[in-house]
């Protein structure tokens, strides 16, 4: 009897393993599909957990992260300033990341054409995560959620701005980090 019970248990476990294995395969296929799709669009799309390491790098660089969208007029207005500082301070170890909050349905119709048209040199990723009430305060406790918003950080210091920048203002803030 004991043996039968053990056998039963064993069966259960192996059965469980099978299910897990299947799930894994399915998720891998899904990942592959997603990757294929993204490469066709040439756009990296993340949820907050995926984005988090990209906006919390610990290295010797100065990082500028700008949250924007093609529909956001003040964001689009200041984008050239971010492009300009990337160009100007790249050799000083500045890295710019543009995080688009465009609606996913507009990735292909608006965001990707915008990146191409304006020949954006900075890295652009899209954040697609509807649980904004989780990730907005996680990015900064004082962020109301209005964009544009910008983080400037290095491994020691981190500043958050819920505002529009002029190029001069942006450079002033960056120079504090670079000097």
């Amino acid at each position: 009897m004991k043996h039968i019970f053990l056998l039963f248990l064993l069966l259960c476990f192996s059965c469980n393993d099978n299910v897990k294995e299947q799930k894994k395969v399915i998720s891998e296929v899904a990942d592959l599909e997603a990757k294929k799709q993204n490469s066709a669009l040439d756009l990296e799309i993340y949820d907050y957990d995926g984005l988090e390491p990209l906006i919390n790098k610990v290295d010797n660089k100065v990082h500028v992260v700008n949250f924007w969208a093609t529909w956001c007029a003040p964001c689009v207005k200041e984008l050239p300033f971010f492009e300009a500082v990337k160009e100007k301070y790249e050799d000083d170890g500045l890295e710019v990341l543009l995080v688009s909050l465009d609606f996913p349905k507009n990735y292909e119709s608006k965001l990707i054409p915008y990146i191409a048209k304006h020949n954006l040199k900075s890295k652009v990723v899209a954040l697609d995560d509807t649980d904004q009430n989780r990730w907005i305060p996680a990015i900064n406790k004082d962020w109301s959620g209005a964009i544009p918003a910008t983080i400037i950080y290095n491994k020691d210091k981190r500043l958050f701005f819920e505002k529009s920048f002029s190029q001069e203002e942006l450079e002033t803030e960056i120079q504090r980090f670079i000097k």
């Binding site: 529909w71 956001c72 007029a73 003040p74 909050l101 904004q132 009430n133 907005i136 305060p137 962020w143 109301s144 959620g145 209005a146 964009i147 544009p148 529009s164």
Partner: peptide
């Protein structure tokens, strides 16, 4: 969030989630 909050007020209960954040367009 809003429906839950109004329902709580109508029922005379404490609102569970009193503040939330969301992305939006800056007021011009």
């Amino acid at each position: 969030y809003v429906e839950d909050a109004v329902d709580a007020l109508l029922d005379g209960k404490e609102i569970k989630v009193k503040e939330t954040r969301a992305i939006g367009c800056t007021i011009k």
